[in-house]
Design a protein around this nucleic acid. Structure first.
Length: 217
DNA sequence: AACCAGGAGACAT
DNA sequence: ATGTCTCATGGT
């Protein structure tokens, strides 16, 4: 079976560095993490552009905004009513704790629990924020990650989030520079999925769909 | 025209 | 602990 480190090597060889997250500030990363829940990034870009254009890309502006207005602005990202609430929850929490800079002092486990306590932030969104906004050593697991590693024989298809995250982190525990490694790894899996093989339904006839990475090149 | 996207929560079992 | 349903726009 292909090792977790070898999978990374092959992904990196194919797609090169991805330099994620596509966001300019930690706060923009957090907003993007919520807006991209089960949604294509192209749609999220529009929503973020709208927020910028409306001068609303700050915690204060989002909390102060009328919920209907906020939903209207983020409309292109889909699920706009739920996501408007989720953004407001996130921003209320950020203001309550005294801003992002205050959070830098917290240990990762405590920060993770605090994020998960915000309604609308689940495991993946929390870990996106931890890794890409706070540079914490957390392996982000998403639907593609589960499909990839279950198809490669590393885990069951119905593996739970935490089980797979801990398994992957354990497999890479001796790797140097894990934060940049995790950063690239998740981005590379998404890049790979964008090309092929990681959709919900396996593409019939695709010779790679049982795990393209088993093949060289 | 169906399928899917860088999920999460409420709720039932 | 594990399923099912809902939320919704935009691209292929």
């Amino acid at each position: 079976m292909l090792g977790v480190d070898e999978v990374y090597r092959r992904l990196f060889e194919r797609y090169g560095p991805q330099h994620w997250w596509p966001g300019e500030t930690p706060f923009e990363v957090m907003v993007g993490a919520v807006l991209t829940q089960n949604t294509a990034w192209s749609n999220v870009e529009r929503a973020i552009d709208n927020l910028k254009g409306a001068q609303m890309l700050t915690p204060e502006a989002i909390v102060a905004a009328d919920p209907v207005r906020l939903a209207e602005v983020i409309r292109p990202s889909g699920y706009f009513n739920v996501k408007a609430k989720r953004l407001a929850n996130l921003c209320r929490w950020l203001i309550e704790v005294g801003g992002e800079t205050t959070l830098a002092a917290r240990p990762t486990s405590a920060l993770r629990e605090a994020l998960l306590a915000v309604n609308g932030i689940g495991y993946e969104t929390a870990d996106d924020i931890l890794l890409y906004a706070f540079d914490r050593e957390v392996f982000v697991v998403d639907a593609y990650t589960k499909r990839l590693f279950s198809r490669l024989g590393h885990c069951a298809a119905q593996v739970g989030y935490e089980a797979l995250r801990l398994q992957l982190e354990a497999a890479l525990r001796d790797a140097p520079a894990r934060v940049p490694l995790y950063n690239e790894y998740h981005a590379l899996i998404v890049a790979h999925a964008k090309v092929h093989c990681l959709k919900r339904a396996r593409c019939s006839g695709c010779p790679l769909h049982h795990g393209c990475l088993n093949r060289e090149g």
